[in-house]
Nucleic acid binder design. Structure first.
Length: 118
DNA sequence: CGGGTGACTCAAA
DNA sequence: TTTTGAGCCACCC
């Protein structure tokens, strides 16, 4: 049926999310990537939002360095979602990434493209 | 089944 | 140049 139901949600996680987490986990230390890049790698270049959504679900997945994932401009758009105000920035700086005004410096240089690297 | 949402992205005015 | 609008896909109720 269609959807009626049985929501099997519980117990089985959507592969899509897992996929995002997997890529996020593959992000090298001290590097950053964009939602669109991950989405494209998954085959849904237009679903960058979903990647962000997946990050929202990352709650509980500490292994998922959401702080390494930023928007196409290199701006910490999701930093507002992190606890604290500069937690995300602190994490990035801790890895050697320069962040100023919620924007990553030398973003192009630190940008890590899964479609090319993987 | 249907509707609403969203941590994005691209394009046009 | 900056701002505004629409598109898109997957998850949740």
């Amino acid at each position: 049926m269609k959807k009626g139901n049985t929501n099997t949600n519980s117990g089985e996680e959507t592969n899509f999310f897992e996929r995002v987490y997997e890529v996020a986990r593959c992000i090298p230390h001290g590097r950053v990537t964009s939602y669109g890049a991950i989405a494209k790698y998954l085959g849904a270049a237009r679903s960058a939002r979903m990647v962000g959504w997946a990050m929202n679900a990352c709650d509980g997945r500490e292994d998922v360095p959401a702080h390494r994932v930023v928007n196409r401009k290199g701006v910490l758009t999701g930093k507002h979602h992190f606890e604290g105000t500069n937690l995300m920035q602190q994490l990035l700086e801790s890895e050697g990434v320069e962040v100023v005004d919620n924007q990553i410096q030398q973003f192009e240089n630190l940008f890590w493209d899964p479609t090319e690297e993987l």
